[in-house]
């Protein structure tokens, strides 16, 4: 690690002020991505601003058909919630137990790793991401590889997930890293069927062709014969674009079958 100043923020305003006054500051929530990057000297910030002392950022509540998850809620806490079982199930399969005990939903979403799980939930469930400045529709949040709609220094405060009629998440995990090679959230919501896909491309996306097919017929067989265009999909040591393309269908079908079960 390079040297840096560890700065504890006591509230959101304090965090932002530290961030603004620093020439190069980075927030740390759980640190599950940031700290390994620091250790490998892949990041060299002047200031690391700890958000964990800020009160009120980690509550999880359920009201009026919406589950509101504080940005600093840890994966293990989301995994223990009951109102959206698919979301809990997704959280329970992130990384490993120790990672789930530290990592936070806000940190994960702000990082926008192309293989992270939560983006599939945000898109699939039609969540809204609230920051200290505004509310961002989930559909507008993920911009590109590690790039989100967040402005510099903007802090996620909570994520609101409308409770779906039913939903399921299927994940094909990378055997080495446990990140998603492909993860698919299928949800039947008040606003229709939504399918959120993570792992396959530069960032998570909705698969409208699947949404349309499943709207007509919520069964795995409805996805037969629908071509998934994998030309822009990620291709790496672990999975070619074509394999990812195939896995998108296989995981979507698994999710649909879980819905039925």
């Amino acid at each position: 690690m390079y040297s840096f100043n560890f700065r504890r923020a006591s509230n959101i305003e304090d965090a932002q002020q530290i961030h603004q006054s620093s020439s190069d500051a980075v927030y740390v929530a759980g640190g599950m991505t940031l700290i390994p990057s620091l250790k490998l000297r892949l990041a060299n910030p002047d200031d690391v601003v700890d958000l964990s002392q800020i009160e009120g950022l980690s509550a999880i509540s359920s009201n009026d058909g919406v589950v509101s998850v504080g940005a600093m809620a840890r994966h293990c806490e989301v995994a223990a919630t009951s109102d959206i079982p698919a979301l809990a199930s997704l959280a329970s399969r992130i990384g490993d137990a120790q990672v789930r005990n530290r990592g936070t939903i806000g940190g994960s979403l702000a990082n926008n790793d192309p293989s992270a799980d939560y983006p599939a939930a945000v898109l699939g469930l039609g969540a809204t991401i609230h920051t200290n400045a505004r509310a961002i529709a989930g559909d507008d949040f993920f911009v590109d590889l590690f790039e989100t709609a967040l402005e510099d220094g903007e802090i996620i405060t909570r994520v609101d997930f409308p409770i779906p009629k039913r939903a399921a998440y299927a994940k094909f995990a990378n055997q080495a890293s446990k990140y998603a090679v492909v993860g698919v959230m299928v949800a039947e919501t008040d606003a229709g069927v939504r399918v959120g896909v993570t792992g396959a491309a530069a960032c998570a996306f909705r698969l409208t062709s699947f949404e349309e097919a499943l709207s007509a017929n919520m069964s795995a067989s409805a996805l037969d014969g629908i071509d998934v265009d994998s030309s822009d999909f990620n291709s790496d040591l672990h999975a070619s674009a074509a394999y990812r393309g195939s896995l998108v269908t296989v995981m979507a079908k698994q999710a649909v079958e879980q819905l039925a079960a």
Binding site: G31, I35, V48, A97, Q98, V99
Partner: peptide, 9 residues
Amino acid sequence: SSVKACTVL
């Protein structure tokens, strides 16, 4: 809770 001490500042 179990945590990886190498990944906690």
